[in-house]
Design a protein around this nucleic acid. Sequence first.
RNA 1: GCCCAGGUAGUGUAGCGGCCUAUCAUGUCGGCCUGUCACGCCGACGACUCGGAUUCGAAUUCCGACCUGGGCGCCA
Length: 430
Amino acid sequence: MRIPIQEVTPGIGKAEIVGFVHELRDLGGLSFLLIRDRTGIIQVTVPKKKVPEHVLSAVREVSRESVVRVSGTVKAIEKAPGGRELVPETFEIVSLAQSPLPLDVVEKVPAELDTRLDSRFLDVRRPRVAAVFHIRNACIQAVYEQLFSRGFIQITTPKVVAAATEGGTELFPIAYFEKEAFLNQSPQLYKQMMMGAGFERVFEIGPIFRAEEHNTTKHLNEATSIDVEVSYASHHDVMELLEEIVIAAYRKVADSCGQFLEQMEIRDLPVPASGFPRLPYSEAIEIAAKKIDEPIAYGDDIGTAAEKAIGEEIGSHYFIVDWPTAIKPYYAMPCEHDPSVCKAFDMMHPRMELSSGSERIHQHDLLVRQIQAKGLNPESFSFYLTPFRYGMPPHSGWGLGAERLIMTMLGLQNIREAVLFPRDRHRLVP
RNA sequence: GCCCAGGUAGUGUAGCGGCCUAUCAUGUCGGCCUGUCACGCCGACGACUCGGAUUCGAAUUCCGACCUGGGCGCCA
């Protein structure tokens, strides 16, 4: 019976393991092989004069990254990594790896991200790369735990849609039988319709598609959005929820991913403190105006330089609130006392934007006016607008970029590191 | 969409008009080696993205194509 490498301890006596050949060292009369499975690495020591002939011939034949099955005696040896080693009685090559490898799994020689992504299956064999995805899994699990425990209903919404949801970003057109269709940029409209359906608390974690031809370390053309919508909640309520979920994700990783953080050489993962600062947009602009060269004024979008300057000033997660209505989507609720400002927010990490959300307009006629004010045609949104005529609860929500959450949490330099198979301007394979 | 930068063995690099039959590392193959842990030592193998131009001579300069990285705008 095969056991996980992590569970191979000196006291165990005999053990059988299956894994990849991580490294091979032949010292002549003595050979060392490091065998790796998802739980760890163990040294297999082969004293050539003391092992069966079939073990010797298999060891001679085996190559790095081959899959092997080894059984034998576990010995406590201080000189061995982990304080134990396996001396084989049987050694079976389950699947021989060709050489040369397209990528050095042991990382004696670095590889460029592009080369790594071409051979992602090999790249992810590296423990420190695999660690990112174990941590990503823990984050998503934490989000599920938070949302399910609060009575949220998970929904799935169409990714193939007839028209743009928000205007603005470019959509990928696709052929849909005899009709024109697009890949959805956001579940926004569908989440809101489910408020109209009376579900009160919904979420979806799924892909969103943006056809922007950007080529940066923080954009993907297919990203994962954690999308939440809550009835009878103000934007303040959902900001608190967002903050709690981000903190829960950090805490989950800090508490349960010690081994993976270690592999990434992250000694200590600081969990953000609750009470993220709420920075009014107008103050954010003032900070940026003082710190950057390019001119910036009230009413402008917050560009990359401004975002960076403000992030440096605040130094932790924070919200930008009280946005001008003019630069937020049509569905953001204007403030009663000053409709030029709306109840929208962005949630920021010092490095970049992670999430944006708002209290939504739930009054049909106001929504139509706002759509028109953005130069869009309400008729193309009739499927979305109709529910607003038959009793629509007030509601708020947000969308959180999963890859950006992981990227900023782990200090990854490129967002592509946070996705197994990224889709960017140039990459469609694998 | 705009603007930069770059394509040299499987991988990562040096070279940037003649010293290039192209450097180094890693890898692979062969040899020696019983405690390695980036094992060591000896030997071998393996590359200038493609097409055109300039030149006595091009990896090196120019033009074009293809491919790639990054920045900006916008966004999660």
